[in-house]
């Protein structure tokens, strides 16, 4: 049953990706034709696809690193502060977590709005447009992505730290280890399984980011400079009804994510750790 639920959509995705399948085929205006790997050839021959793929990988990597750094730092902070500030930080993080992506994106966009945004007013930037430059637009989206996904990392890692016996930490502190040293030599190795899970989760999330880019850069930015794979696939599949091309992009994304995850697990296993 579970296998069916998982396999059937993927099977359909793969199937559609080897046919010429647009709106005309769906509604029966034209017969469906088998294309083999034609859609993939078209995709790989398209310079824009490689550009978008590169942007997606770099952007996702930046998001994952930032999210993990912020999440872990705040998790450690949580263990060091007293109850009231801890509660406040927890609530703030949960608030960010619970905010729907569309709402979050819109609010961030407003904060950085060229004409009415408070950020420009506070920084005295006049009517500087944050979404005009490629990197500044990606940076803006990165902030939003980190903001809405660090709570998961923070809460999970915090729970992990709580499970670490207090004596271990105490012993390290007595030996004169700095906070950073404790994290690197004691906590991180003990939390490895948890870190693996949140990293894989983050990779998958950030690689598939859609809403933030779609909302904050108006569907891909000036001249498509902020397109990521998911938005690109949407543009192909739904906006212009080239379902088969969209499906091919989906399959490529699936394979990339699967490969990343497998390589990661493999590396871990070689180090003698079992998940």
């Amino acid at each position: 049953m579970l296998g069916g639920l998982l396999a059937y959509p993927i099977y359909q995705l793969g199937l559609i990706s080897v046919f010429h399948y647009t709106q005309a085929q769906v509604s029966g205006g034209e017969p469906t034709t088998f294309e083999g790997f034609g859609n993939y050839a078209e995709l790989f021959g398209d310079g824009q696809f490689w550009e978008v793929l590169l942007a997606t990988v770099v952007f996702a990597a930046a998001c994952v690193v930032s999210t993990l750094a912020v999440g872990c730092a705040l998790a450690v902070l949580l263990t060091r502060v007293r109850a009231v500030p801890r509660l406040a930080l927890m609530l703030a993080a949960l608030g960010a977590w619970a905010t729907p992506a569309i709402t979050g994106s819109t609010v961030w966009l407003f904060l950085f709005d060229a004409d009415f945004g408070p950020v420009n007013r506070v920084l005295g930037l006049g009517d500087h447009s944050w979404t005009y430059g490629r990197f500044s637009a990606f940076f803006l989206v990165l902030l939003e992505v980190v903001w809405c996904s660090f709570p998961f990392v923070m809460v999970t890692v915090y729970a992990g730290i709580r499970a670490v016996p207090a004596e271990v930490l105490e012993a390290a502190a007595l030996d004169g280890a700095s906070q950073w040293r404790i994290w690197r030599s004691v906590l991180a190795p003990m939390l490895r399984p948890i870190l693996v899970v949140v990293t894989i989760q983050s990779v998958i999330w950030d690689f598939k980011v859609f809403t933030q880019i779609y909302v904050m850069t108006g569907g891909g930015g000036i001249a498509g400079q902020n397109l990521v794979l998911n938005v690109y696939a949407y543009q192909k599949a739904f906006a212009s009804s080239q379902y088969s091309l969209g499906a091919a992009i989906g399959v490529v994304m699936l394979l990339i994510l699967l490969a990343v995850t497998l390589v990661y697990l493999r590396l871990l296993r070689r180090q003698g750790e079992e998940l």
């Binding site: 199937l15 559609i16 085929q25 509604s27 029966g28």
Partner: peptide, 15 residues
């Protein structure tokens, strides 16, 4: 077997 048997994705016949 599934891949060869099922063949094509669904279409609706709007003749």
């Amino acid at each position: 077997v599934l891949a060869t048997a099922a063949c094509a994705p669904q279409t609706s016949g709007t003749s």
